[in-house]
């Protein structure tokens, strides 16, 4: 096909379009939706008994903040990457992984300070319901996120899918922390961080395919 013919063809298809809202606005909408969803789901599942006391504990608050930062930074990067030319710096796509590392390092430090770290991790203190909850929360938030991303035009599918999958799973981990009563860093590492990494990898593989059909 000749380029001139293509131009005529495309111009003929130029129907009015509504400009997409900015990444910040779309992030806000997704975040608001997820807060409502998480609030309802945590209420339905039953929050941990000592939630308000736990929120006042620096360790619990720090753990929650690093997980939340991972989710927010990853979702922000995903929305930015879905719009051509919107990314100001490549640091933006790396930050979520730094936050994920910070979360893992924090837990590792807590584990080491508690003594006998290797044996505690090798005991594989997985509380399966935590894994299911992370999976459930991630599926809902991830689906909503990928639907939103497909409305844009992500050029770098692998990067977009990976940060989006990380956002969804980290969000799942945030919501699960309101329910999970186990504060042992070994459990948090094996039962929360590990599922987030595994599910993010799986989500990336699926997400790349879901972004495949998006016109770029």
């Amino acid at each position: 096909m000749k380029t001139d013919d293509l131009i005529v063809d495309l111009a003929r298809q130029a129907t009015p379009v509504t400009p997409l809202a900015s990444p910040a606005v779309r992030l806000g909408r997704w975040g608001a939706g997820m807060v409502v969803f998480a609030g309802a789901a945590v209420s339905a599942l039953g929050p941990r008994q000592d939630l308000f006391d736990a929120l006042r504990q620096p360790v619990y608050a720090a753990r929650l903040m690093t997980t939340l930062s991972t989710a927010i930074l990853a979702a922000a990067a995903a929305f930015v990457l879905s719009v051509p030319g919107a990314e100001r710096s490549r640091v933006q796509r790396v930050l979520p992984w730094v936050a994920l590392g910070g979360w893992a390092v924090l837990l590792a430090a807590l584990l080491v300070s508690g003594g006998d770290p290797v044996a505690r991790v090798l005991a594989f203190p997985v509380n399966w319901p935590c894994g299911y909850k992370i999976l459930g929360f991630s599926l809902i938030s991830g689906t909503a996120l990928f639907v939103a991303l497909r409305r844009a035009a992500p050029l770098e599918r692998l990067w977009t899918a990976s940060v989006a999958a990380l956002a969804a799973t980290a969000f799942g981990a945030v919501a699960t922390q309101f329910v999970c009563p186990v504060d042992d860093p070994a459990h948090q590492l094996v039962g929360h961080v590990l599922p987030v990494i595994v599910l993010a990898a799986i989500g990336t593989a699926i997400g790349v395919r879901s972004l495949d059909g998006v016109r770029r």
Binding site: T3, L6, V17, P19, V83, P84, R216
Partner: peptide, 12 residues
């Protein structure tokens, strides 16, 4: 050109 067409709604 095809990509511009498909992504034209994303330009702010």
């Amino acid at each position: 050109l095809l990509a511009v067409h498909g992504a034209r709604h994303t330009w702010d």
